[in-house]
Nucleic acid binder design. Structure first.
Lengths: 221, 221
DNA sequence: TGTACATCAGTGAACGCGCGTTCACTGATGTAC
DNA sequence: TGTACATCAGTGAACGCGCGTTCACTGATGTAC
């Protein structure tokens, strides 16, 4: 599958052309197969430059017009992951939260979100613990930003009004790591096993409930 | 460092010999450099067979006397990780828990434990999210066992006596993922930054406190 | 609008290198008698 | 205890292969006049 031979990169779509647009498009054509390969269960650090350019339908040397090396492409993937996370928060903000069974609803929304963007989440979940130190660090930074934004949102919503900002941030950190952990589990779910799926969602919901329960009773020291 | 040339494997220590012992020793000599390389910030899936045998001071072909391929060696590392986790629980059980500031004490003990066995924890933290599916699955199984044992121990200690067994297991699962997450953070701590170290420990302690607070107020549905 | 020149994304060939795996081998350990 | 044979962990050489990187190149897009 996806074994297209290197063809001229331009002969792709009804060209809106312009050198800049063309270059940007090739850049994306390099990022995409990297994600695809990760989605097939490969660790990012085991990908090769040639493999990526081959999938992209571009000559290996062309890679260097866009990235200095694989680490730099990895950072682009992290950036993409960051965008995905921010987008998730924005959606959650827009939808508001139905007060009944809010946690379960959120979990289900999150699950669908992860499944629809499985490649990015596979990358984040896979590289955030292992992988190259520079990429790991970058992912952690994104996570921290995500936790901060989440804290702001909870503040704005008046959830947990008694918590200090540091405490709120700490709790959001816990939520974020739990979320990303769950992402990994969600992606490894075997298809067509609704029972197992149900169990995982329940477990996830319960864990969140514990965390928010703890947060409600948290007292500053 | 560690660039020893391939020498005859036997000429190592005052030989207790015996074919079986000798083979076992070489097996360990293959596992060890794999861990060392991981400790240097390399993902397991980026290691090569030749690299490992080179560090082990053994010819590449010798690898096949011990493992079918790199995945099989990876599973041996997982096994080692499992042993390490079980050992941690055994120690915790033996030491009991001083009732005052129990959580903080546990966290500090855990931190030291992780630092002293940094290689194994680096491996577990690194491969449990990404890496080869078979290894990821194996680590998850170990985690689950670990959570079960922890649940049993808490039961035996009479902690959280009102929780049902499934609920207790769910909470231990949350604790375990938080622990392994923290392991990754602990290992990435820059040396000689006591302030940052202190912050991380505090954060970790607080997160645990939230979880156990939530557990105390948990009511079955 | 037309022409002459500059830019630069992508090409294709070449390089030296480390890789995983195979194979027949050696020689110490183990076993049968 | 001694001898003859079996076992098998580790050797060393060889293989074909994909790798990252370099280089001079081509030809379409962009710019100056």
């Amino acid at each position: 599958m996806a074994t297209s031979k290197p063809k001229p990169a331009k002969a792709d779509a009804a060209s809106p052309s312009s050198r800049v647009e063309l270059k940007e498009r090739t850049r994306l054509r390099l990022i995409e197969p990297a994600l695809t390969l990760i989605g097939q269960g490969r660790g990012y650090s085991s990908l090769s430059l040639r493999e990526i350019t081959r999938e992209a339908g571009v000559v290996p040397a062309a890679f260097y017009r866009h990235f200095r090396d694989l680490d730099e492409l990895g950072l682009a993937l992290v950036e993409m992951g960051g965008v995905t996370l921010r987008h998730l928060l924005r959606e959650a903000r827009r939808d508001g939260l139905s007060p009944t069974d809010m946690l379960r609803t959120s979990v289900l929304i999150y699950k669908r979100y992860v499944e629809e963007r499985s490649l990015v989440f596979r990358f984040l979940a896979g590289e955030r613990g292992g992988g190259s130190p520079v990429i790991r660090q970058a992912i952690r930074t994104e996570e921290s930003h995500f936790a901060s934004e989440m804290a702001q949102d909870l503040r704005a919503l008046g959830t947990l009004p008694d918590l200090s900002s540091p405490a709120l941030h700490m709790i959001c950190g816990l939520v974020v790591t739990t979320m990303l952990n769950a992402a990994s589990d969600i992606l490894d779910l075997p298809k067509g096993r609704p029972k197992q799926e149900q169990e995982l969602v329940d477990n996830f919901v319960h864990q969140f409930r514990v965390v928010f329960l703890g947060a409600r009773f948290w007292r500053e020291r």
